[in-house]
């Protein structure tokens, strides 16, 4: 009897998880606009100047992800692990270890991204996903102070999507070689060897202190 009850209890345990995965995920229609529901990611877009972005889906190598992930080839696996068969090139350096694939990719609907509140987001709208944490950047992005406007400065507004510049898995912009240095006039040459750099106050203080130690 006790044993039977224990089994029942154990069986019920994943229940809430099950419910979360299947029923609570809302599919957001593109035009949805609910004034009071501030956690709706599309709400942010509804209240900013209209814009479009180039489709990202066309640029993704593996898209549609479902081809492998839900059509029975690979079973969902939420376990944090080292990927060995596919996606080995992804070196997740974002969130300082707090994230796993399924933080942003919907484990059930692989063609979609997912917010922390389990709302599905298109791969074409990564700014909705990034904006969850980077809300200040997101505001600047919508208004034009972050990211970049494409092609024209008036008329329909097309913005560069977050993922066009940032690799979402390694979002830091990396150092690289710059283009050619400026030239002098024809026939003249640059002598930049003795360029002085003013000492910073802390450098000066350090040097003065060194002298004191010597004495």
């Amino acid at each position: 009897m006790n044993r039977w009850l224990l089994w029942m209890f154990l069986l019920c345990l994943p229940g809430p998880l099950w419910a979360l995965d299947t029923e609570e995920i809302k599919s957001i229609p593109e035009t949805a606009k609910v004034a009071h529901q501030y956690d709706d990611p599309l709400e942010a877009v509804a209240r900013v100047p209209a814009f479009v972005t180039d489709s990202r889906i066309d640029q993704l190598i593996y898209y549609p992800c479902e081809n492998c992930h839900t059509k029975g080839m690979v079973a969902p696996n939420d376990k944090v692990r080292t990927l060995e068969l596919m996606h080995m090139e992804i070196n997740l350096d974002h969130g300082k270890g707090r994230f796993w694939c399924t933080t942003c990719h919907d484990i059930n609907q692989r063609n979609q991204l997912i917010s922390l509140k389990k709302q599905r987001i298109s791969f074409d709208q990564p700014y909705l996903l990034c904006g969850q944490c980077h809300f200040a950047r997101q505001r600047d992005f919508f208004q034009g102070a972050h990211g970049k406007r494409k092609d024209n400065w008036f008329g329909p507004k097309k913005l560069t999507n977050c993922t066009e510049c940032h690799d979402p898995h390694v979002p830091q912009i990396r150092a690289r070689l710059p283009r050619k240095e400026p030239d002098p006039r024809l026939g003249l040459s640059i002598d930049n060897s003795d360029k002085h750099h003013r000492h910073q106050p802390w450098d000066q203080a350090k040097e003065e202190h060194k002298d004191e130690v010597h004495q």
Partner: peptide, 11 residues
């Protein structure tokens, strides 16, 4: 320095 070399990574 406007002449920072094109052989060294920036920033």
């Amino acid at each position: 320095d406007p002449y920072y070399p094109s052989t060294e990574e920036v920033p």
